[in-house]
Simulated scan of single mutants.
Amino acid sequence: METVPQIGQIVKVLRGKGEGEYAVVIGIIDARTVLIADGGKRRFDRPKKKNVLHLELQPFISPEVAGSMSETGRVTNAKLRYAIQKYMQAKGE
Rank of each mutant, 00 (worst) to 15 (best):
Y82P: 00
K49T: 12
L55M: 05
V11C: 08
T3S: 10
I84Q: 12
E71W: 02
D45H: 13
I36F: 00
V11T: 08
I10N: 00
V4C: 07
Q85Y: 14
K48E: 14
E19L: 10
A31P: 02
V11D: 11
T72R: 14
D38F: 00
Q58H: 01
I7M: 10
M1A: 11
E93R: 03
R43G: 06
Q6Y: 01
A66M: 10
A90W: 01
V34N: 06
V65N: 07
M69P: 02
V24A: 09
V75P: 06
A23P: 06
K86S: 13
G40H: 11
E2F: 10
Q85V: 02
D45L: 07
D38N: 15
M69F: 05
D45E: 14
V11E: 11
T72W: 12
R81N: 06
R43A: 07
S62G: 04
G92H: 07
G16W: 06
G16I: 05
M1C: 04
E56I: 00
T3A: 08
T3R: 12
S68I: 03
G67I: 05
V75L: 03
K17Q: 12
R43Y: 01
K49V: 09
G8S: 08
V13R: 15
T72F: 15
I29V: 15
L35Y: 13
I7W: 03
Y87L: 00
F44K: 06
V24S: 07
E21W: 08
I26L: 03
S70V: 14
N51T: 03
R32G: 08
R43C: 04
I10E: 01
V24R: 02
E21H: 14
P59I: 02
Y22D: 08
I36N: 09
R32Q: 08
T3D: 09
P63Y: 01
A23D: 12
L14R: 14
G92A: 05
L53E: 14
I26D: 11
I26V: 15
V4W: 04
L55N: 10
G27M: 01
M1N: 08
I7V: 14
T33M: 10
H54Y: 11
I29W: 07
V13Y: 01
I29L: 15
D30L: 01
Q9C: 00
E71T: 12
L80W: 02
L80V: 10
D45Y: 07
R46Y: 10
K48W: 14
S62D: 15
E2H: 11
G27E: 04
S68Q: 13
M88S: 09
M1S: 12
L53K: 10
E21M: 12
M88K: 13
G8P: 07
A66E: 15
L57P: 08
K12I: 02
R42E: 09
I84W: 08
N77G: 14
E64A: 13
S62H: 03
G16S: 05
G40V: 03
E64I: 09
V52S: 04
P47Q: 05
A23L: 05
A31E: 15
N77K: 03
Q6C: 02
G27Y: 00
K48N: 11
Q89E: 13
K49S: 12
V25P: 07
E93K: 02
V34W: 00
V13L: 15
M69Q: 11
V65T: 09
E64C: 11
K91N: 04
K49Y: 09
Q85C: 06
I10P: 02
I26S: 06
